[in-house]
Design a protein around this nucleic acid. Sequence first.
DNA 1: TTGCTTCTAATATGGACATATTGTCAACCG
DNA 2: CGGTTGACAATATGTCCATATTAGAAGCAA
Lengths: 206, 206
Amino acid sequence: MATEEYHAQRRNQVADAVERLVAAHGLDGVTVARTAAEAEVSVGLVQHYFASKDDMLRFAYTRVTERAMERVERQARDLAEHRSTIRAVVRQGLGERLPLDDARRAEWRVSFAFAARAVDRPDLAAVRNRTEAAIRARVAQVVENGKECGEVPEGADSEEGAAGLMAVVEGLGLHAYLEAVPADVVLGVLDRHLAEVFPGECHQYD
Amino acid sequence: MATEEYHAQRRNQVADAVERLVAAHGLDGVTVARTAAEAEVSVGLVQHYFASKDDMLRFAYTRVTERAMERVERQARDLAEHRSTIRAVVRQGLGERLPLDDARRAEWRVSFAFAARAVDRPDLAAVRNRTEAAIRARVAQVVENGKECGEVPEGADSEEGAAGLMAVVEGLGLHAYLEAVPADVVLGVLDRHLAEVFPGECHQYD
DNA sequence: TTGCTTCTAATATGGACATATTGTCAACCG
DNA sequence: CGGTTGACAATATGTCCATATTAGAAGCAA
């Protein structure tokens, strides 16, 4: 049905507005009225498409996390096509999450604002944990693949390796965003940790 | 003057209430009226001692970060007294920041709530960056000390090492708090990264 | 046409909040 | 002793917000 498409389109329109507002003023700056204004619709429309403000935020956050997941997925697919090392793919996939330019700063801010609120709100924490676990599992899988290829030592714990990389990226993100640590140090730290998880060279195509 | 002492005591009394409220309901749950009730004083008193709500929060956050810094300081002092390895001292100092039991969960939550708001509020970011930089510098200094002792390789970049450890702890904290990663994996990741920064054995006292 | 449903807008309601204002009481000082 | 000042308390003010209510428009069926 075309009406369902229209429905989804409207919801996305509102969610887009939410993202812009969060990027500009943080989650505290998001009110239903302001969101409606930003999306150039009425408050009534927003209410019609979302049962409550929480529902609206949850939908917006779900979109954000799913987008993040798709990106990692896409990077992982590229692995099969290009002959780049696994380490390089992971570096690109996770590095994309770092707020090192304006576009990614805005994205990071949105993600982080929701993550911070997830600390107080179990429903948002659930949204976050679901996708984050999926990404971590994907990274772990790729690390596991690295063993066949020779980039990762046989005995390595790929789950722990993935968890470590995710944690580093998480922490570096905050430090980078607050400009507590300069960009070159941020990338240096990331590379160092990647080198630890992927100490070997890929000899699959040799 | 005793009146200044009294003054400071009152401000601390209010700040204590702020911390309890943040730990229980997040920063959003903090209102001037609620804080006054929690501290068992009147709204007027709070206003008398703090020029604005922001001022009150800034004071509370400053206290939190300074306490965190003192703790790392204390751990560093213990290094001189006990004959533990530098790595063990850093592990304890940074590990204390992880929300792995109820007490530290509460503390972590307060710190993180403020850190999250710092993303939107330059004054809080300044408070955070100041103490965080001091802690990082202290960790870097300790890593540097590790070179003399043999725990850290000569060529290592101690600044980067410290930044990496801080980032890992930051990220692990969030993952641990949200229970996205089990405690044993969290500690495993921390130990792995410590082992990377401190790969050698201390032979100073041999 | 009439009536029903879906979608959208405008306005109303009621609560929560930061902060200002005013009042009270004590201590201290000239 | 009168007056001033500092430490509080109680109440008032005005803003902002989420959500409810009401109503109107558009499309379609009978």
